[in-house]
Design a protein around this nucleic acid. Sequence first.
DNA 1: GTTAGCACTTAACGCGTTTGAGTGCTAAAA
DNA 2: TTTTAGCACTCAAACGCGTTAAGTGCTAAC
Lengths: 365, 365
Amino acid sequence: MEERHEELSERKKLILKAIVDAHIADGEPVGSKYLMETKQIPCSSATIRNEMAELEALGYLEQPHTSAGRVPSERGYRFYVDTLVEHYAMTAREIYQINELLKEKMAELDHILLTASKVASNLTNYTAFAIKPRASSVTVRRFDAVYLDDSTFILVLVASNGQVKTKTVRLSDMPPLSTAVTDLLALTLNEHLQNLSANEITLPIMMDMEKAMGSRAELVSVAVKVIYEAMSELDQGELKVSGMDRLLEYPEFNDPDRMKEVLGAIEQKDDILRMVSDPEGTGDVSVVIGSESAVKVLDKSALVYKPIIQNGKTVGAIGVLGPARMDYAKVLATLEGISGNVESLLSPDGRHIEEGSPKPPPHDS
Amino acid sequence: MEERHEELSERKKLILKAIVDAHIADGEPVGSKYLMETKQIPCSSATIRNEMAELEALGYLEQPHTSAGRVPSERGYRFYVDTLVEHYAMTAREIYQINELLKEKMAELDHILLTASKVASNLTNYTAFAIKPRASSVTVRRFDAVYLDDSTFILVLVASNGQVKTKTVRLSDMPPLSTAVTDLLALTLNEHLQNLSANEITLPIMMDMEKAMGSRAELVSVAVKVIYEAMSELDQGELKVSGMDRLLEYPEFNDPDRMKEVLGAIEQKDDILRMVSDPEGTGDVSVVIGSESAVKVLDKSALVYKPIIQNGKTVGAIGVLGPARMDYAKVLATLEGISGNVESLLSPDGRHIEEGSPKPPPHDS
DNA sequence: GTTAGCACTTAACGCGTTTGAGTGCTAAAA
DNA sequence: TTTTAGCACTCAAACGCGTTAAGTGCTAAC
């Protein structure tokens, strides 16, 4: 009785696609008669019913209750996304929008990602997010120490991945600072800690630094402590979400309890972060439907995301969260478009995607 | 027939307070019989009914429909907040929590505010936010330029209010950079632009700087452009929200449409920002109920916030957003507690509030 | 293998009825 | 004059119930 994806008859595929399309469009269960009338299936409603019954037996469809139409199951969506979605042709207007909104001269990853998530949300009408994934090992490319007042200075860290982190350090019970002292500190840090990851900072190195700092040796331990902190925050990852309110536009999120779960999940962010930071990622768009993933995305929801690659390394991701019946074709195309754009923004030569550059329909591994 | 707040009879006050308390507790309209039985009002339900009718005529109460109990009106809440709330005595545990959660050695405003909003949300069970208000005029206390590669450097700005902003600058069609060049740039910027606000940067100053930069004069205009941008972003303000999901716990936000409005408003953030940045603020807790304010807080909602003062200047605010029937006593006490704590964290000597330090019940102006 | 037809199921809808909490008013009591 | 008991009235919410309509599964004919 088990049948493999590939072995679905053409007509079954046609019907399944029609059902998913229809359900995506209006969210209602879809019945045989409706299907025959509006989707031009070349056979009668009875035949369609038979096919639907079989599709249900195979696990691609399900019935909310006996006398209702059919709704795609998770497996149905999966199959749809993997093999049935048509490539969505972005309109000139949409391409223009992506370009316009993103091309403002931005060089910082943070800013770019935030804007990207806003664009994604606007274009797709779903809740979108952008993410800076957990970096496995950051090193600091350059330190700087800025004198603020006699007991305060600012430590600036430029990380290997381009992120910049600043920490204000306040001393107590120590002799007053001066620009000379902070300059010396910066020099020492740069000489000894450049391009080391957090766990490569060893005691001998610290002792060397204390020697270098002469009379202000006590600053070393303070600074190192703060640097430790900063570095662990650096590979913390961050999540920017836009268009939360759009979630409410879809009736499947109308239930307050469900909505609450979703909001909580978004705020928690840890799960999403972990998933998107998955080093296995090929760089393709991934689609997670319902309970498929370790991430507790809720029933009837889907998460679509695409990593952003810079110099062969994953530096972030943008994605969309919405009901399982989301408009995959459009979302996939939009994410491809935006990520392509972001990647080109990040590379020194700032070109943008051209209109009508078709890509093969991507699918999850 | 008009009567001033002060002229409400004691019994009316008692009844009004009882009604607000009861409504805060369970969200239902409250009736005369219930009031008499559970709140120990020393008279019969008929008398209470008469008083309630008068309170309604005076605008402190309203009736959802003829045969329902009474519900406080906006004016009722206002009166309650201004004169009837009892001071909420924080439990030792709550004070401990505030101290514990906040006292982690944090020196940066950003981080502190974010944590503060989380604490506020946890303690009150409402949605909380923390905000960095629009600064009227920022100046830069110190510049720094960090060489990244031949065409890229990072500009670090330390603002007068302690904020730190970094900008990655990517050059095109210019001779390659070097640390010597960026050092020179930093030196020049510090010499010429320190403690100036954005609109004090004039052409003569720029020309001086170009002279100082010698062969790399072209960097000046690039840098100034970026600095302009950074400074305007600096006084942009920022809003951190925690515990959005808690909104859903209150039935008055269950309606998807309403929820959508609220989420939109939060994301918009501009209104909230503007209001909280109000320079008129005395530093006391403010309570905005329903449609009272310019801010389009929704019907049946209330916004409670308290500015955070540092060196006599408002550097931020923390607040809570919830249904109009929120537990004002607790919220007010919590915000007082947290803000006191935050302020002491920001001042060099890091002391915390003590248990049982009573403050007079605050109220809006 | 396909289709027409029919009996069956069931959520949703409309609608009158009942219920009950709560009021306003009046007349008696304090 | 103020308070209270009592009662008639109101109205939203809950309930019951028949009707509707969409949709199915099955069977028998094509």
